[in-house]
Design a protein around this nucleic acid. Sequence first.
DNA 1: AATTAGACCAACCGCCAGCAT
DNA 2: CATGCTGGCGGTTGGTCTAAT
Length: 420
Amino acid sequence: MGRHSSCYKQKLRKGLWSPEEDDKLIKHITKHGHGCWSSVPKLAGLQRCGKSCRLRWINYLRPDLKRGTFSSQEENMIIELHAVLGNKWSQIAAQLPGRTDNEIKNLWNSSIKKKLRQKGIDPNTHKLLSEVENDKDQKASASNNKASEQDSYELNYETSNQELAVEKPKASQPPLITSNHPYTLIDNLTSPTHEFFLNRFVSSHDQTSTSKPQDLGNYLSFDYGGSDIGLSVNQNTNNLFYIPASKSSEMISELIASSSPAIIPSLSNTFLSSPSSIKASISLPDSDPHMGSFHLLNRLQNWDTNTLTNSTNNDDSFRWGAQDVGKLEKDQGHDIHSVDGPHDNIKWNEYLQTPFSQSALQNQNDQELYNGHETKPEPQFIANLPWHQSQQQQQPMQAAVTDVYGKHFHRLPATFGQFS
DNA sequence: AATTAGACCAACCGCCAGCAT
DNA sequence: CATGCTGGCGGTTGGTCTAAT
């Protein structure tokens, strides 16, 4: 194991590559391709093992490498992808044309990690460091009484209006939503897989979509506490996003289910003017896998109730599924997976044209992803063009990524702060 | 000017999965 | 089924550069 057996057969060079070696390797590969890497050194006249040749080519000699310093967009993208994929450097690199996994890994370890920590963000979990500590404490106590909460898969979002590094005071937490919704919740759903979500949304999509394949995404938002909360389904990728965002620069987003590891939307700083903490839960009933409900729960005692709409108990649930779509399509003339719920003021159609549009994508160059408080307040969706581009080049992506999530999707919270 | 510490990054190491035999 | 080979990946090392002392 480890070094390939061929590397032991003869005394092979190690260490840095000389320009002459590089030249030999380039000439050989450009002329013949690499073929079987183990045969490359012999054919190219190199005293290296095939593995070393492969690495040198991939990480350094390949003509399509970008090299040079990473742009802030690239750094932000890496952070977002890392929040979803973890240390899957090769998959992250796949979304960044011209960048290698090694390069990204080095950047992460040498630079980004440090910056995140300075912002009070745990680079491993992408949560606030204070939260990570809090989670540890809660885990111990949660094991004692988890039985009462097993019927709902919870996604926790803690947004803070404070600077990232500043620990916010802990609010007392009301009980989770468990009974105020129309569907039977799935028992013991503590760690659903990506497939669990994806299958449902894909199913729902397949059953309900009309012929609008050009739509880049459906987005619905609803007013909650005077703030927009978004739920988006991208028809091309079957992504479902839950998009909370806070008034301040920090952004917490979580990819609930996605076939794309790359598209993490962000919203601007116009959200959640008063709450600093919200909780969301997803309910997926076994009885009908094509429907589900989406809950937001205000966890703060000091929520400004005047801004709530049609909410009497701080429990807002939104459902998706086939039965709702017909109604919405009829009402709005669009294909949308979607909602029905206590709110009347769903204003998804306002956003339908914009979230994943090219113009919106291009706008990301005008503004840092992790912008500061003083930046312009328009809602802005940040997606990643490179992913779309690579998607076009790699059609079997869907299956591959699904596999990725099957392995690695658990809970993937992402916390971002101003990053400079 | 010499030394030290930290940052950066290319390359290596160990492991794994897939495939062929 | 067992074994060996290979490509690929993530973690780690160690050399080089640079800034600080």
